[in-house]
């Protein structure tokens, strides 16, 4: 007894599962390119250089929160600006959907910023 049929079916299933991203990509019309982000216009520069912001903006925000909430310090010594997600960051990056969300969605990241910073849609820049 060889069970050839069952084994071939098993191998096929294995290949289908392992190559899932290929099928998924094909069904979605191919994986997209990284999103073009709507960057803010107000300020000349960001609070840190772009490279740092791309990789570790979450660390900076975490640090800011701790300093504001725990130490009572409100001003960022590097940039001289207020350490505030809703005021400083969203002042420039006013289009949250086009900036934060777009990129987070692309990377499959689901941060909990907006659980607390609960803004009306598109209200970021009015603050």
């Amino acid at each position: 007894m060889y069970d050839k049929g069952k084994i071939l079916a098993g191998i096929a299933l294995f290949l289908v599962l392992v190559l899932f991203p290929v099928w998924y990509g094909a069904a979605q019309g191919g994986p997209g390119r990284p999103p073009d982000l709507v960057v803010g216009t107000d300020a000349e520069s960001c609070v840190r250089d772009t490279e740092t912001m791309r990789i570790s903006h979450m660390d900076l925000l975490d640090e800011w929160r701790n300093r504001v909430v725990r130490d009572g310090v409100r001003r960022d010594e590097v940039s001289g600006r207020e350490m505030s997600l809703t005021r400083t960051c969203l002042d420039c990056h006013a289009d949250r959907e086009g900036f934060c969300t777009k990129c987070h969605d692309y990377a499959g990241v689901d941060p909990d910023c907006w659980d607390c910073h609960n803004l009306p849609e598109g209200a970021g820049h009015e603050r």
Partner: peptide
């Protein structure tokens, strides 16, 4: 890790 290979996630 599929999130690096699936678009949209």
């Amino acid at each position: 890790h599929l999130r690096f290979f699936l678009d949209p996630v």
